[in-house]
Design a binder for these strands. Sequence first.
DNA 1: CATGAATGAGGATTCATTCAT
DNA 2: CATGAATGAATCCTCATTCAT
Lengths: 200, 200, 200, 200
Amino acid sequence: MKAVDKHAKIIAAATKVFAKKGFFNARISDIAKEAKVADGTIYLYFNNKIDILLSVFEEEIGAIITHTRKLLDEEQDPRKKLEIFIVKHLTAMKKNKYLAEVIQIELRQTTKLVKEYRNSKFNEYINIIAEIIEQGQKQEFFRQDIMPNLAKRTIFGALDEVSRVWNTSLETHYSVDEASCQIIKLFVSGILIDVESSSP
Amino acid sequence: MKAVDKHAKIIAAATKVFAKKGFFNARISDIAKEAKVADGTIYLYFNNKIDILLSVFEEEIGAIITHTRKLLDEEQDPRKKLEIFIVKHLTAMKKNKYLAEVIQIELRQTTKLVKEYRNSKFNEYINIIAEIIEQGQKQEFFRQDIMPNLAKRTIFGALDEVSRVWNTSLETHYSVDEASCQIIKLFVSGILIDVESSSP
Amino acid sequence: MKAVDKHAKIIAAATKVFAKKGFFNARISDIAKEAKVADGTIYLYFNNKIDILLSVFEEEIGAIITHTRKLLDEEQDPRKKLEIFIVKHLTAMKKNKYLAEVIQIELRQTTKLVKEYRNSKFNEYINIIAEIIEQGQKQEFFRQDIMPNLAKRTIFGALDEVSRVWNTSLETHYSVDEASCQIIKLFVSGILIDVESSSP
Amino acid sequence: MKAVDKHAKIIAAATKVFAKKGFFNARISDIAKEAKVADGTIYLYFNNKIDILLSVFEEEIGAIITHTRKLLDEEQDPRKKLEIFIVKHLTAMKKNKYLAEVIQIELRQTTKLVKEYRNSKFNEYINIIAEIIEQGQKQEFFRQDIMPNLAKRTIFGALDEVSRVWNTSLETHYSVDEASCQIIKLFVSGILIDVESSSP
DNA sequence: CATGAATGAGGATTCATTCAT
DNA sequence: CATGAATGAATCCTCATTCAT
């Protein structure tokens, strides 16, 4: 087996274990067992436990960013782009629930664990939303009085919380379509400059 | 000192310590020191570490619920009520950043720590949003095609993420007014049945 | 049991265990078992493993220094003082073989473990030899051409190596008297200004 | 490269690494890196880590023994022989500080690591001192009341401690000449039968 | 009720050694 | 012979929890 494969195997195992147990309750031996390697092997590929978490985060988010950008490049209309982002995010989270957990739960712990870490990938990801909004404002599809940096948080937070529920099984489970549709309705109709309503 | 006072002191200390260090990195002795009691004393008021966390959560959220309900009772218009909820939440989170952290971070850990715990208070809290929406739908201010249970997540998630940023100091700090105004715009204009736009 | 007692018990246990196994092969649990305390208890009194070693060293050497100084104060003649030092050192090492091992073996490891550590107690101890020599030179009992700082090393090294053998059981075991007598002969007759031999 | 060369390279590397870090803190990979071979290669030439240490010791001491004996064979007078031994030892230790460390530090650990090991080379080495003394006693240059086996320890211990300081850089650095001269004075004048003083 | 010294289970990490290539 | 990736046993240290005072 190549080094790349083992690295990937550990990442996958860690994603699963962190999601199931949370970072602190996850033992290195859990990850090792899940990845079918020895405990020590993990330290050939990662510096320490937190390094695994950050790697999981960076790599998985990185893959989503790449894929999302490709989808967005095929579309010009910012209104459609926003829809695509929302659908893509929810789809990705529904598909990889382990990842969803890691992003949601561990994202909030990271700050406490490594002060210097800046979540560059995460910022890159949510800035996609800001870019879409800015483009929409330039093309006068979106209201000028919306602040892109606040709106990106609002939208990401909404998506994040909705997909969180998918993992807790405490409530009615909505399909990706349902959820996307609802969230798009809430946001797009709001963010969109309503031409008709402004006319007399 | 009365038992009630000591209980309150420990809750306050725990809120502060959990917020600063996170649940797992917080030591019982940290909380004891902050509360100016002995380590062992804490176990006279709480069963174990997780019990402190849950108590913090329940009591602090409980206080917010009480206060929020009082504010909402003074208002009839569901559109105004939604605004009140949003402003109240952001104000509370800005005022007590420790609490904000605890709600945001620990909320997501809880599931992993105690399987049987159902976050009753948290559910009670976000169900306030659902109630407002349902009322608004009955009174035909809000669209009928919005699902209250999905919308409550969307709105809470948005508020939560926006207030999370206040504690990370990584970005421009918006005032409560700015943030409330923006979020209300995004949601209310979207959720509101736009009478004008539906007219010919 | 008072804290002082437990501290002392751990020091005694550590001395024994370090002597038997050496610092690196000694496990904290060995020391804990020997001291009849829990592993964790050790960390209430010492910061870490190396701290135990340094404490053992400082405290045991400290006691010897105190006792040696008391003995020396009762004597004026530097020739006698040197004898007293030699006898005292060998007696102490024969009595507490564990300590002898720790001084001899660990003294040499310490430098590698803690760069900043300066063995202040050890230096204080061997400087007693230098002081005796200087006094003897002032009173013209000892040769002026002897360098006290080199001689102190020579004498300590000799004593140290001789007492080392007592713990290895590889060779004929000399009594303290025999060894003292021999070493004194070698050194004192050499260091002493031989009045007769300089006379014609 | 021949096997002999690789063996020698590893010995040289191990000497350096053990001296710098001490036996326990030295990693096999450190030695491998220093010797520019793979970790596994070391196990083609040595059984295990302690075997390397013992080999280093035996081989380096062996070389010194050979050289020392050659020097001594060229001299008949035991008084001169003792001087030669002292100068030779200090010169060797000053030249190869790595070796000095290994002899001094590891000599004392060995007993704890391998019970059955008897340090044959080391004993051979210090027995040279005993032989010189015995010869000196036969030829009536040295006092009869000196016990050669105790004196050999005394002299070796003194030399060892003096050369130890050269590696710690904590004190004034004496030259080999200075140190030899001082130690010879201390011992030889003491061990020598003082003809004049015994005459009436 | 309050204390805080003592406990000891638990886990991240290291590194000597092996063995498939 | 040589390699170095992989192994997994071993251990220091932390900290939630207890209980004698």
